[in-house]
Amino acid sequence: MATGGRRGAAAAPLLVAVAALLLGAAGHLYPGEVCPGMDIRNNLTRLHELENCSVIEGHLQILLMFKTRPEDFRDLSFPKLIMITDYLLLFRVYGLESLKDLFPNLTVIRGSRLFFNYALVIFEMVHLKELGLYNLMNITRGSVRIEKNNELCYLATIDWSRILDSVEDNYIVLNKDDNEECGDICPGTAKGKTNCPATVINGQFVERCWTHSHCQKVCPTICKSHGCTAEGLCCHSECLGNCSQPDDPTKCVACRNFYLDGRCVETCPPPYYHFQDWRCVNFSFCQDLHHKCKNSRRQGCHQYVIHNNKCIPECPSGYTMNSSNLLCTPCLGPCPKVCHLLEGEKTIDSVTSAQELRGCTVINGSLIINIRGGNNLAAELEANLGLIEEISGYLKIRRSYALVSLSFFRKLRLIRGETLEIGNYSFYALDNQNLRQLWDWSKHNLTITQGKLFFHYNPKLCLSEIHKMEEVSGTKGRQERNDIALKTNGDQASCENELLKFSYIRTSFDKI
């Protein structure tokens, strides 16, 4: 039985969820670079991206490699990797027998973001014989899940209580170790020597080791999670996991709180800001991140802002960003909400898709409305799209047979046209069989910064309504002859009103 693990408890099935942008060198404390989270699957090609990484700022997932063999891993080693800020997950990587050479110096898994409450997941690794993470000293947050690894031993010899604050939620089941077939031998045991430290858990006094050649490092209890030197002297209180010299914040392997210019500090002093819960960055760093993602459509890219001495992905609820200094300031009234469309555009074809934009005031991208039916549609669209004030790209209304009016965009005031449909149009209306009105132009103002209007096959939309939009939106004169079809717009509506004058002759039985 794995020490510190839980057996036999019912657990939810383990679901495996399925960018080499360097964020800056980590400095003297770390020998390499800070790398983003990685999802490495199918083959070993991307694994080489770990070569210079000291910190993975995010998670590391290595999974679904069915053609790899043990010899493929023999020359692979990433000794610079010290810390993973989120979680480490391995799933069905064939041929991998140990992690001792792959990650010989991995010391800390912070667990800032977890995989279903777990910071370390080893699942269905069919050839893994031992973990071998002999320098792993601290899992700051989260638990361990090690399950269905039929060859995995050296679990009962690990004292997880020396690595985690609590072992109650560890789930370590259905491994070879369960069948008591392992016969784990710690260093020196074969020669009758006791080389590794022994600890007591559940009444068992057991030597602690990761492999037959690597003991588990056990520091004096007084050192807590700070770690200790090879001689057993406690590291500085700002260290986490390990250090090369005692009581020196510049000799830590990793930091308990924050890293700044080669030393570990309790908090980031001005003019620095907390970033990702582990390091200090200056304003320029946060500003660069903001600008890199301002026009990016890459998933996970955030326009970072500053709030409460932190550089964070977005302002919290009730705050909006001051564009001059990136500071989050309290909103006066309802907060603006910028919604970034991942692929640059979004099609609204149902109430469900409209709900995804609920509360958005600025759309960074283009909207395509293609709704053919739905219950209580006008009210639903207004509830979900009615706060949109600005669209950076274009607005396209296409084959939306259920629409009679666009009044559900009740606050839309600006279409920038930074991206144009077919390279020309910022407003595009095609084949809307029941569209009769755009907006009530006596109450609604709309500016279209650039781009043209396109109207074709809107049989109940009168040309007068379209011409009014040209005047109000500032697009009059931009359109070419064929942009607004004269014969297919309003051709099934009563669009022309003329005053009919009647004269009559009164007659009676005795007068003409």
Rank of each mutant, 00 (worst) to 15 (best):
H28C: 14
L29I: 01
Y30V: 05
G32D: 14
C35N: 00
P36L: 09
P36M: 12
G37Q: 13
G37T: 07
M38G: 05
R41P: 13
N42P: 03
L44C: 06
L44N: 04
R46A: 10
E49I: 09
L50D: 00
E51L: 09
N52W: 02
V55A: 04
E57T: 04
E57I: 08
H59Q: 10
L60H: 00
L63I: 03
L64T: 11
M65T: 03
P70K: 10
P70F: 07
E71H: 14
D72L: 04
F78M: 08
P79H: 06
L81Q: 00
M83K: 03
Y87D: 00
L89I: 12
V93S: 01
G95V: 02
L99W: 01
L99R: 00
K100T: 09
N105F: 03
N105H: 03
R110K: 10
S112P: 00
S112Y: 04
F115N: 02
F115M: 04
N117A: 11
I122P: 04
M125P: 00
L128W: 01
L128A: 08
L131R: 01
Y134A: 03
N135F: 02
N135V: 01
M137E: 11
I139N: 01
R141C: 02
R141N: 15
G142W: 00
R145E: 02
E147H: 07
E147F: 05
N149G: 04
N150D: 04
C153S: 15
A156E: 03
I158N: 05
I158C: 03
D159M: 04
W160Y: 04
W160F: 14
S161V: 09
D177Q: 01
D177Y: 09
D177H: 15
E180A: 08
E180I: 03
D184V: 13
I185L: 05
A190E: 07
A190H: 12
G192R: 06
K193S: 05
A198I: 11
T199S: 07
G203P: 05
F205H: 10
E207T: 08
T211A: 15
S213P: 12
C215Y: 08
Q216G: 04
I222T: 10
K224C: 05
S225W: 15
G227P: 13
E231S: 11
C234I: 03
E238R: 04
G241Q: 04
G241I: 02
C243F: 00
P246C: 10
P249G: 04
K251N: 05
K251A: 00
N257L: 03
L260S: 05
D261R: 09
G262W: 02
R263C: 05
R263N: 08
Y272W: 10
Y272G: 02
Y273L: 05
Y273K: 06
H274G: 15
Q276I: 07
Q276K: 06
Q276N: 11
D277L: 06
R279N: 07
F283G: 05
F283M: 08
S284L: 08
F285D: 08
Q287K: 04
Q287V: 08
D288N: 14
D288T: 04
D288K: 10
L289R: 11
H291E: 08
K294P: 08
S296V: 15
Q299A: 10
G300T: 09
V305C: 07
C311I: 05
C311K: 02
C311E: 03
E314G: 05
E314A: 11
S317M: 09
S317D: 10
G318W: 12
Y319L: 05
T320D: 08
S323I: 05
S324K: 14
N325I: 00
C328L: 02
T329V: 08
P330N: 10
P334L: 07
C335E: 05
C335G: 06
P336Y: 06
